[in-house]
Amino acid sequence: MDKPVDTEAAILGSAVALLREHTFEDISYLDLAEATAVSERTIYRRFPTRSHLLEALASWIEAEQFPLPQFRTPEEFREAVRARFRAYETAPGCAFVAARGAALSPTTQAPAVPITSAIFAMLDDAAPTLNGRDRQRIAAAARYFASPMFWARMRTGFDMSADETLEAFDRAMLPILAPARKTSWAA
């Protein structure tokens, strides 16, 4: 581990491996240090608090574990969301961390997540004359229902599977996309 490999990525990779068996709360900095073969001090230097760790871990998981399929149309958006919900279900420990990390008070200025700009691009393409207020409302709602937060709430609060969660997503999106919809949604 002396090579100048990305220590941060190595630490986050160990955390992801530990998340298969443990919750985030159960993973100590000592566990992480041992799994990564670095000192506990190194972990503290990279992640001064557990919030820092959770936030970095969540963005890493989103990018590495659940990469977002490209989409340009509402139909492709729906397929991308379906693929994500199914992926969350196969790695729930990671998906809960992704949901929680997205809820934290940000410690760093995170770069814009690609899904948000992709949703705006999709809307601009599907409804180029849509007024600005509805454009923002629709994008905000679509972004929020497509998030790991929705999957997490449906799983814990409603005991829904990934496919049921997609059904709830469809039901929520139908009236939200109505002002921007020319083609049918989830026909």
């Binding site: 809820a103 997540v113 948000t116 972004r143 929020y144 409603f158 829904m160």
Partner: peptide, 18 residues
Amino acid sequence: AALCHLDSAATWVTMRRE
């Protein structure tokens, strides 16, 4: 389910952050 999702602090956080 949809109303519960909207009636939460995560709505505010997502729209603020993202």
